[in-house]
Design a protein around this nucleic acid. Structure first.
Lengths: 366, 366
DNA sequence: CTGAAAGCGCTTACAG
DNA sequence: CTGAAAGCGCTTACAG
């Protein structure tokens, strides 16, 4: 019995060995070829006539390599189409080579655009990009723990409560960066965080509506990451500066359905003539509810959104909204990881009010 | 000489060991706390009183472990909060543990929803998820090569030309699955592909408009992955069955801006009374263009989209569209990788025409 | 500047 | 069923 087993194993080994060799030869011949075993640093070293440690130095950008040696190694790398094995580098304690994005959502515009910016910057830096969705409060800790890995940094999209929790669950010295809704008061100096000036954006949009002649501006926020949302603060301060009454924000959610619900509640109040919405999807839902209630936009009710999604300009009426550069935010966030010259924590590209058709003077002056 | 070298080596080991410990110790103490270096299988083995190979067997689900031994190991794993090192597993030739999604886009609804479905299923299977965007034709080969990695499977979102190219660039025996626009004729049997019955969906939507009384239906497609798009075929065959004239499709792109351009061209033709659009964003753009041209929807022109994005029901008029289950498609695609009982290549959940407000009888009968 | 050693944390054979 | 060996492809020290 034992004999038989041994025999079988030897055969197996032989077959495997044979396959590998045959494969390497057939590499460029797709039809029928088995998996090409890719070149290792030893192969490159042999082709370049140096030791494999030198190859390691070259691929890691060590300066202590003779220029001509480097040339020869690079040529061999090119020739063999060598790509360092990520797993081996990570295991051996090599440099950061990938980033995992922790986010509660991947499809909402701000999140998806942020992810796009991260991926774009990461790809340019030859970093791999992973995604881990934060499912629930109970899942956050596990998500962080499973994402911590030598060789990979973390990026947290901390626009909401789950993201915020993940941010605070990252063990010290795990390399990371984050996009936050707003920095923690006081403690944010020196943190690898980027954000958008939501406070200023909300204030500007609110002022715009007030200047149009609206008596006040109602607010349908997205769920905030903290107790005090900068948008809420910006909206309120603009209202106060104008001595306009501050109405209670209408709690909702993230999408058009949530906006629709909020809109129905607002439509019941004839005093509502202007509504600022936490994102364009909410705005879309509010518009729908208003029109169902017979309130024309912008003739009877003005609506302003946040984000400027690619569709917002094509709605009817085209949405007046605050453009937020999430793609740039994602890129900036990634840059924080490498700490290059373009890396700067803090607020990024200022938001910009894009005036279109969904807001106008109220029917009668105040 | 030999003796000396041996001695030196022993010293080296000691020094190395010392340095590492010191470093490790410092690493963990930001100022004060001690971050435990994560447990390895050897730690678990020690805690459970077994060899580390046995731990390996347990975490890999080997059946050849005594139940009581397994219990003990699981307890130690729990106690030490052990998580296998992904890099080490990959390097040593362990099982698949992550999947990289190759896609030309991450923000368009179909792609983003597909990604969501994949992530969801992958997370449940404790798989990591990577993303690699296909930037251009020139980038495809590089994208595939860099994504091939032991321990990680590939999922290609092959709805478009770039995705299709990536699909065909995958070396044989790299584990993968794909969501395609349509299977290759003849050669698709047994391939790990999933898709949605676009042909049937387009035919159904077209028939619906014809049955409403429209003389014909114009078509604004999304760019197809192949020469013959199933949606185009479905649209055309429905038209032919109804003996309706087949107008040339209006080439456009993927987003509302592209839809707007197409819509302007269509609006110039007074004979256009019904338009089928390749996705909801295009439909939104077409609607905008039509209204700018003074054509009311649906009174003068009917519009039908594809996708049923979360916003489509809240547009005014609410969009009549074909609902496609991209989230389910993503899950099904992932399931193909593990080959479990739920894995079935082929067409997935049938599309469903969702009738809302954007399509109606033409003003005058045909 | 370049080479030889040790080891990262696992897995697969293999031997009991 | 369980243990001891070899090695995955790299990197960091270290020694010249």
């Amino acid at each position: 019995m034992t004999r038989l087993r041994v025999t079988v194993h030897i055969l197996t080994m032989r077959v495997t060995g044979h396959t590998k060799l045959a494969t390497a030869a057939r590499r460029r011949q797709p039809p029928g070829g088995a998996r090409p075993r890719s070149a290792s640093i030893r192969d490159v070293a042999a082709a370049a006539g140096v030791s494999y440690q030198t190859v390691s130095r070259v691929i890691n950008g060590s300066t202590k390599v003779d220029p001509s040696t480097r040339q020869e190694v690079l040529r061999a790398i090119e020739e063999l189409d060598f790509r360092p094995n990520r797993a081996a580098r990570a295991l051996a304690g090599g440099p950061l080579q990938s980033v995992t994005v922790l986010t509660s959502n991947t499809t909402l515009y701000g999140y998806a655009a942020m992810l796009q910016g991260i991926e774009d910057a990461a790809r340019a830096a030859n970093f791999g990009v992973g995604i881990r969705v934060l499912e629930s409060d109970a899942d956050v800790e596990d998500a962080v723990a499973r994402s911590v890995d030598p060789g990979t940094a973390l990026i947290v999209i901390a626009f909401d409560r789950l993201g915020r929790r993940a941010l605070h669950a990252i063990p010290p010295e795990v390399p990371y960066a984050a996009a936050v809704e707003t920095p923690d008061e006081g403690t944010s100096a020196g943190q690898p965080w980027v954000w958008i000036d939501d406070h200023g954006a909300a204030a500007e949009a609110t002022r715009y509506l007030i200047d149009l002649g609206h008596r006040t501006v109602h607010y349908v926020p997205i769920p905030a990451s903290t107790e005090t949302s900068p948008r809420l603060l910006g909206w309120r301060s603009a209202l106060r500066s104008a001595a306009a009454p501050v109405r209670r924000p209408v709690r909702s959610g993230w999408d058009a359905a949530a906006g629709y619900d909020a809109g129905r509640r607002l439509a019941a109040d004839p005093a509502v003539t202007a509504v600022l919405c936490g994102n364009d999807d909410l705005a879309l839902g509010v518009m729908r509810a208003m029109r169902e209630a017979g309130r024309a936009i912008p003739r009877e009710v003005s609506i302003v959104g946040f984000d400027d999604t690619p569709s917002s300009a094509y709605l009817t009426p085209a949405l007046t909204t605050v453009r937020l550069d999430f793609i740039g935010l994602g890129r900036a966030c990634f840059a924080l990881l490498s700490g290059g010259p373009t890396a700067a924590p803090g607020p990024q590209l200022p938001p910009q009010l894009v005036i279109r058709e969904s807001a106008a003077k109220p029917r009668r002056g105040r």
